[in-house]
């Protein structure tokens, strides 16, 4: 096995040990492991580390004096409902509780990208890119022919993403897939530059152009012709910029 085929396998091996692997990924991993001693060894060492941690690392229990102190706090704090229900209805009180929790920054849902994709959730695009790098996730349609890729999106999206082949310029199109980011379907076109993959996310709208670096991935954002574009890759920024200019037709 070449080293290239091991790309992304480390996180798959970890996900398998953590019980977070889907059936399709598990199958891809099994096939790879059968022929790769390096990855077999990695799986072995991660597995025995897990076993050791669970067996030998202390899981500290709350000491009795702490438990007593907490119980005393619980007993001495007046019932919240008793304090406010006299002034607000129970339903309002419930909403107030939720509001207070939100205000305190404790809402569990605050991390979810609830708005349409924009500059602020570059993380979501990087996560989608990393997910896609795992075996079996990259393409829904694997084709270097834009006349195959473009029609594939028909009926799957409520818009038609522009699909251009840049093989002659050194950025061949290799496929496409559907992604769901921040609650909406976006087209993801996959291009290759040498050994680097570039995910180009496309969805309708317009926004300011920007450039971000998140977790070592370069993210170029721009809009053209009523479409938003996000290019995400570990490819170096200069070549990403050239890719962008080839797509926008501006040099």
């Amino acid at each position: 096995m070449t080293r290239e085929s091991c790309e992304g396998m480390d996180l798959l091996i970890q996900a398998e040990l953590d019980g977070e692997l889907g059936a399709a990924e598990a199958a891809a991993l099994t096939v790879h492991l059968a022929g790769c001693e390096t990855c077999q060894a990695l799986r072995q060492s991660l597995g025995s580390l897990s076993a050791r941690l669970r067996a030998d690392a202390p899981r500290y229990a709350a000491p009795p004096h702490l438990r007593r102190a907490v119980l005393a706090d619980v007993a001495s704090q007046p019932s919240w409902r008793g304090r406010v229900a006299t002034r607000w209805s129970k339903r309002d009180a419930g909403w107030f509780g939720a509001g207070a929790a939100l205000a305190a920054g404790l809402s569990l849902l605050a991390w979810l990208p609830l708005h349409s994709p924009d500059q602020s959730n570059t993380d979501a695009f990087v996560s989608a890119h990393i997910r896609a790098l795992q075996p079996g996730h990259l393409f829904d349609v694997a084709s270097t022919d834009r006349h195959t890729v473009k029609p594939w999106f028909d009926g799957r999206l409520d818009f038609a993403p522009p699909v251009r082949d840049l093989a002659a310029q050194g950025y061949p199109l290799t496929g496409g897939r559907l992604d769901y980011i921040a609650g909406r379907a976006v087209a993801a076109l996959v291009y290759r530059r040498d050994k680097h993959l570039i995910d180009l996310f496309v969805w309708p709208g317009s926004g300011a152009a920007s450039f971000h670096v998140v977790q070592g991935y370069n993210i170029f954002a721009w809009s053209q012709g009523g479409m938003n574009f996000r290019a995400v890759s570990d490819l170096e920024a200069g070549q990403m910029d050239r890719f962008k200019h080839l797509l926008t037709g501006k040099t």
Partner: peptide, 26 residues
Amino acid sequence: ADDIVQEAMLRALRYHQGLRGDAKPW
């Protein structure tokens, strides 16, 4: 750890009315 947990439990006591779903990650 004692101090952190006691303070966290007081906060949890104050805000648990807004809790939805599993309490452990919260």
